[in-house]
């Protein structure tokens, strides 16, 4: 565990909590892509199956349980509790165009051809593109609430910090996982355009951030 890993995990946790609280407090999931949130629930479920087979640490187990729990709670709020506020018409990204190629890639390129390893690889690849329905939705409506941009910033920052963590681990532990690094790079690059807008147009007294 190094400082980049820890701050990355905390940034990820902050993003998840921010989104849950935003929906809960406003009693609305307007502007939030339910499809992205379902993909994240699938990502956590397929990645953390090792909860059943191995114990790493109390930190590891509890964070995994919190991530999974919050992901399903978010999906529940969007599709059940506040379903009336869900903007399905604007959430029109075709997720099969992500899930099918990502599934094929996980079968082809993985560390070990076993069910658990393929599911883990699938979750890594899927996470890298899971935000696309959300970004697509924002580009379609042309705006995002400030709190939604904070969510996206924390979520993007998390993977960028993990990249620094992997550089650290390469230098100090000689550890290099090309699958995670490749997917992490793709994931971070997808947020770059958003990072730029967040820094230049966010904050101040703007209520909303417009995206092209």
């Amino acid at each position: 565990m190094n400082v980049f890993r820890l701050t990355g995990d905390l940034s990820h946790l902050a993003a998840i909590i921010i989104l849950l609280l935003k929906i809960w407090k406003s009693r609305s999931c307007a502007g939030i892509s339910g499809k992205s949130q379902i993909l994240f629930a699938v990502v956590f479920t397929t990645r953390y199956l090792d909860l059943l087979t191995s114990f790493i640490s109390l930190y590891n187990t509890s964070m995994k349980l919190i991530y999974i729990g919050c992901a399903y709670a978010t999906v529940y709020l969007i599709y059940v509790k506040f379903r009336a506020t869900y903007d399905g018409n604007h959430d029109s990204f075709r997720v099969e165009f992500l899930v099918v190629p990502v599934g094929g890639l996980a079968v082809l390129i993985n560390h070990n051809f076993s069910l658990m390893e393929i599911l883990w690889t699938f979750s890594i690849y899927l996470e890298s593109v899971a935000i696309l329905p959300q970004l697509f939705m924002i580009s379609k409506t042309g705006e995002a609430e400030t709190i939604t941009t904070h969510y996206l910033f924390c979520l993007g920052l998390y993977r960028a910090l993990y990249l620094l963590n992997w550089i650290w681990r390469y230098y100090f532990e000689g550890f290099l996982d090309m699958i995670a690094i490749f997917a992490g790079l793709v994931q971070t690059v997808l947020y770059c355009d958003f990072f730029y807008l967040y820094v230049t147009k966010g904050g101040k007294d703007r209520k909303k951030v417009m995206l092209p």
């Binding site: 565990m1 191995s54 790493i56 590891n60 995994k64 560390h111 070990n112 963590n165 996982d177 995670a180």
Partner: peptide
């Protein structure tokens, strides 16, 4: 390059 993943990462 390791043919494995970091099992401690989230």
């Amino acid at each position: 390059c390791h043919r494995t993943r970091a099992k401690d990462e989230l």
